[in-house]
Design a protein around this nucleic acid. Sequence first.
DNA 1: TAAACGTAGTTGACACTTCACCAAAATTGC
DNA 2: GCAATTTTGGTGAAGTGTCAACTACGTTTA
Lengths: 151, 151
Amino acid sequence: MRWLTPDEQHAWRSFVRLHERLGGRLSRLLQAESSLSAADFAVLVNLTDVPEGRQRYQDLARALEWEKSRMSHHIARMAGRGLVVREECAEDGRGAFVVITEAGRAAIEAAAPLHVEAVRELFLDHVTPAELRVLAEVSDRVVGKLDEDVS
Amino acid sequence: MRWLTPDEQHAWRSFVRLHERLGGRLSRLLQAESSLSAADFAVLVNLTDVPEGRQRYQDLARALEWEKSRMSHHIARMAGRGLVVREECAEDGRGAFVVITEAGRAAIEAAAPLHVEAVRELFLDHVTPAELRVLAEVSDRVVGKLDEDVS
DNA sequence: TAAACGTAGTTGACACTTCACCAAAATTGC
DNA sequence: GCAATTTTGGTGAAGTGTCAACTACGTTTA
């Protein structure tokens, strides 16, 4: 079998470590500064990008690449905290909307600048534009391949 | 405030997406092929790299960059499945060892080749050596910065 | 040597994710 | 028009990770 070369091994492990560390740090910062988890943040960002801050569960799930069940549980919790509201859908009796509330808007508007600043300080500031381009290219290519393998 | 440029935004989002998608795919493959989670796998890899397959909780936690509480919970679950055993430590009455079992060795030996193959097929095969070098450099640099900010 | 402090690991509560299954409503095909 | 299928979303249980509080043991220090 083809084992990993030392270079491959190192690159892969470093890459995984980066993900764990940076992700952990960013979500802890977000939580501390705004009482939003990374998942909450992602939902709210999406809702502010959409007319009337209102979107079908399904569309939201597709946009975030979440499972429907995760969506359902998570929105229930966010609704419990008043960040969003669930609304029935008149046209489609099965469907429902997620709608951002005023409190939700306030939360995301307070959190976004801090989060962007953290992404800069912890990541972008240490990466050259050329490196960033490579990263984006590689990411898009690999995700594209993942999408092809429906497996 | 300094908002993100479109290039930065795109690179950052692609990068995050890559981590989520690739991590999700790999751990689902691992789970399906060998009934090990990514966390189980990491623990077992570490234990096979160490004399007698036995390591202090503390050292294992440091190596994996896990919190001690996570270590404790996770090892308890793995012990329940017979992959490892907990052993008291004679020299230090507080301490304890985690020891890999025969079943644990069998599981990791079955899983490792499949996992490596998946990492190749889903990631390494789509990245040039030069790109991989950039990735490793960036990862190491950024993680290094994270370590400096004790914040 | 006794008090104070630090270290190793545990525990319980809670938040989160996935899985497998369920129900209702819409769509499709005959 | 009606049965079969698909789509949309919900639910409960089990596994996972984090936090804060806790126990028990070791080390330092006065």
